[in-house]
Amino acid sequence: MSTIANILAQVEDPADLKAIEAAGSAGFAYGLAAIGPGIGIGYLVGQAVQAMARQPESAGQVQTTMFLGIAFTEALALIGFVVFILLKFV
């Protein structure tokens, strides 16, 4: 943390400071946004595999639902990624 504070202290131009802060915030936002979906997909797939192992006859329906669930959970990560590119590059 002290290293980051030293770097920020050496920056004189406010525009550069803002750019550095935006880059840090963007990276932080993307990292945080990827954690939630990672946990969500892990839990979702774990439960789906358990359901398939217990009831193989309904495995097709479970896999369909699991695939959609993964895609919905992944949307959160995509939103985080879009926020990242908008903060960092726009």
Partner: peptide, 22 residues
């Protein structure tokens, strides 16, 4: 579904996958 009685986690799908269809 090819069921593996000894270890259900090793069971596997056979034929077209529902995920691919979706």
């Amino acid at each position: 579904v090819h069921v593996n009685e000894a270890n259900p986690l090793l069971s596997r799908f056979e034929g077209p996958s529902p995920a691919m269809q979706v």
